[in-house]
Design a binder for these strands. Structure first.
Length: 261
DNA sequence: ATGGCCAATATGATTGGA
């Protein structure tokens, strides 16, 4: 069972790259972020043709999340609980039935939060508090659950090429990292860090200033596994080569392989 | 983390991204 996450930075601009990558990696479930597309306009056909069921939660211009699954959806629920006023399309959750039982996944696009002196950062912190509350509740189900997405959080110095340049950034501030740590402290496993301590593993490289050519990247796209999912973790990886394709997203796919358990 | 980008919008400049 292969589950992946990818911030595509516009589903319409990335349809060709996404179909090429789906054929190559053959994930069973894919969580997407920054689709930047209203639900009625989502380009479903090329992905349905590859055998995927599609659940979308988008809005005009910004944000937008989706989940593709080869297995049919038993449940689909958009929106992170905890703030009825929050109209950003940043969260969708789905449940599928696998041979090993139910599997729950969420596609998460956590707010960027810059600049930190503004309400944008307070929104990020509140959103993380809501994610913590949601995750705490979901863990009580004691089922395999994977929180997939663009967290806009650099967890540690190991996860950034040039830590000094990020010390005052919303992605790396102590308050941001403390909340991410609180999430893992609930009992979630960062899939990449469960499999390697290597540095230089990034999931995002800015389009500007030759960041990709210099490997000036950051690791901000994560798959967090509940204990029942972590027990089945076989491997995890980052498909870095996709960043070198024509018309790339600034993020690359990250994936896990779970055994049947 | 800026010299250099990219995407969406009824666009020709502005906003958001990280």
């Amino acid at each position: 069972m292969r589950i992946a996450t990818w911030n595509v930075n516009s589903i319409k601009q990335r349809t060709d790259n996404l179909t090429a990558w789906l054929k190559e990696r053959q994930p069973d479930i894919v969580c997407l972020q920054e689709t930047k597309c209203q639900d009625d306009n989502f380009p479903r056909e090329p992905f349905e043709a590859l055998g995927y069921n599609i659940a979308v939660h988008g809005q005009k211009t910004f944000n937008g999340v989706a989940i593709f699954s080869k297995l049919p959806f038993d449940e689909v629920t958009p929106r992170l609980p905890g703030d009825a006023e929050d109209d950003h399309a940043r969260f969708i959750e789905a449940v599928v039935s696998t041979p090993g039982g139910a599997l729950r996944v969420a596609s998460i696009y956590l707010p960027n939060g810059n600049p930190p002196s503004t309400d944008k950062y307070q929104y990020k912190l509140r959103w993380m508090d809501r994610l913590l509350q949601y995750s705490h509740e979901r863990l009580k189900l004691e089922e395999p659950l994977i929180l997939c997405g663009d967290y806009n959080v650099i967890p540690a110095e190991l996860d950034v090429h040039n830590p000094e340049a990020w010390t005052t950034d919303a992605l790396f501030l102590p308050e941001t990292r403390a909340r991410f740590r609180a999430l893992t402290n609930l009992g979630f496993t960062d899939a990449i860090r469960a499999t390697t301590d290597a540095d230089g593993l990034y999931s995002f490289w800015d389009y500007q200033a030759g960041a990709w050519q210099k490997n000036n990247g950051i690791r901000i796209d994560h798959l967090l596994l509940s204990p029942q999912a972590a027990d089945r973790l076989d491997s995890a990886g980052i498909d870095k080569h996709v960043r070198a394709w024509d018309k790339p997203s600034d993020h690359v796919p990250v994936w896990v392989e779970l055994n049947a358990g």
